[in-house]
Amino acid sequence: MTAPGFTWWLRFGDGVAKRITPGGLLIGRSPQCDVLTRSPTSSRRQALVYLDESGPRIAVMGRGTVAVGGRAIELDEPLEDGGRLEVGDLSLEVAREDANEGAGDRSAVWVLETADGGLFSFSTSPFRVGGAADDDLRVEPWPEHALTFRSIGGRLEVEPHVEVSIDGARVAPGEPQRLRRGSTLAVGEVGVRIVTGGELGTGSTVALEADAEPGARYVRLEFLPRGGRLHVRAGGDEQAIYLTDRRCDFIAVLLRPPPPLAAGDFVPDEQLWSRVWGKQPSGKKTLHVLLHRLRKDLDRVGLDGNELLERAEGGGATRFVLRDGAHVDLD
């Protein structure tokens, strides 16, 4: 997740602190807010304090004073450790903490079992398995450099350089494939199995959920006066992330595309262009940059951006991958 080694907090006068997350803390008079103000001059939703890839930020959502270090702010600004925040009748302090228990040694570890029952663990990425002397793990009958394993944000992927069978399904060389605990991979007659793995820090409790079929089971886009909060439940816990204006619009179009398209369908680039940018395509790059950033956003909260935001084969369209019966909610 963001800024490894640190957690960020919003401290209240009475010693209480709330964690600043990528989904953010919404401050305002509405009872739905995460932090309530009683000041009559405050808006129902006045400001959002959230975490982006570089640290905490504040986005102003409504009318009423929002000041940082005594200076009124209007849009969206970064916050610093020790910064004082004035929102309505609240005075809050931004505080950085060294991450504590649970954030210790977060690098991922994977254990492979070979056909003869041998167990091997690796924590370096990439990790090559094949028949060559310079493969990280040598499996004699395999061609050299047959498989390259990569650990990405606690997930394991394999890039096959030869034809491989993953859990019984044939996979051609090339495209990286997502693996799960218990997967078996066979090249020719000889297989290996992923026994276990994930972010197994020593000493601290882990709760690694199984990654089942791809796609989200639950998605909610909560529109805010500026941008919106995306709530997603895929394999594990529900995650939330604040999306600034265009990113939010982009997701909104994918989740509620113009009919006859429905949520989860591929939405052609032209539709995205006209709805998100309000004009004709002026170059592929802009869309790709936005998509790239959105995927990164999702990765940041422990979701799989590549899996959830899928490009059509050959390009030209994008979809938000949903599971059968997924619940989608735009409000």
Binding site: T196, A210, A212
Partner: peptide
């Protein structure tokens, strides 16, 4: 669900570690 690993490494049983 199957495949989930919950516990603390070094103290969890092998069946727990294997999800």
């Amino acid at each position: 669900s199957d495949g989930s690993v919950l516990g603390t490494i070094g103290y969890m049983a092998p069946e727990q570690l294997q999800g």
